[in-house]
Nucleic acid binder design. Structure first.
Lengths: 138, 138
DNA sequence: GTCTTGACTTAGACAAAGTCCAATGTAGGA
DNA sequence: TCCTACATTGGACTTTGTCTAAGTCAAGAC
């Protein structure tokens, strides 16, 4: 993760305690926190961090391409630090749990030219939905 | 569209002026209105319809499987009446315009068993993103 | 080490999207 | 026509996110 901080500093990012804490909270695999969850976790390490700073920092990480914004349910957006490995998401329709998945094939090449309507298509997101094992057994 | 109203009545739906108006507003192809847009259009036909009723009715149409809820941007959800023809969405990253598209292949079968983590996977949504012709030329 | 400055952070007001509730109205069967 | 369970209403409330003005501070210059 200090990789990330190094990279950010290299891009002229001013390194503050608040930004470091947000980056640390997002460290790890299979992390998909909402902004509020990030704020709660950040607060436990740096009690005086404000909501606005969390939102600002998350927004910057997204525009720097270090974090991906995911909105699977039309409610709070979630932030996925796994930005450097192509993947898609599998979401539980009951509890909202998210898993990273790697489908075969390339959906981008599955969209024929005449179905692009002149758009310059640059990205594709695939969201699988279903019921997770623990919700199914409950 | 009276098909829809017939079908709903057959399911025991109580047919009110408000519900009829909401269903009429959603009539058509390539319709992807927000709840607010539906409310505005409904109001022009039935001025006293309330926001709560629009939300209730949209929610019911969704649970009846007559309308699909789409959230492409983490802002307002959009409602897509094209629920009986399998399709996916192409979204302009600048203006938010949505087009229905029909990619080749079946992304559901692209998710191998070991990538399902025990989930009972029932649905998949594919969202293509890019810049539409009119935003590109502007 | 200290100074300076522009970028960063803060608290709180504000906004957008959606939910909830108690009171009122009404569709459709008896 | 009447009844009643279901639908609608308006407004308060919640959640999620944005904005701003004032204060703070990281990091380069000296």
């Amino acid at each position: 993760m200090s990789d990330l901080l190094e990279r950010l500093r290299g891009r002229g990012w001013r390194l503050t305690a608040q930004r470091r804490v947000v980056a640390e909270v997002l460290n790890g695999d299979h992390v998909h926190y909402t902004a509020d969850e990030v704020h709660a976790l950040a607060t436990s390490r740096l009690p005086e961090i404000s909501r606005a700073t969390v939102y600002n920092t998350l927004g910057e990480l997204v525009s720097l391409g270090e974090v991906i914004e995911v909105s699977t349910d039309g409610r709070a957006k979630r932030y996925d630090p796994n930005a450097h490995h192509d993947h898609h998401h599998l979401v539980c329709s009951r509890c909202g749990t998210i898993r990273d998945v790697h489908p075969a094939g390339n959906p981008l090449s599955d969209l024929p030219e005449q179905e692009r309507f002149g758009f310059a298509v640059t990205a594709v997101e695939v969201t699988y939905r279903g019921v997770c094992p623990s919700c199914a057994s409950a």
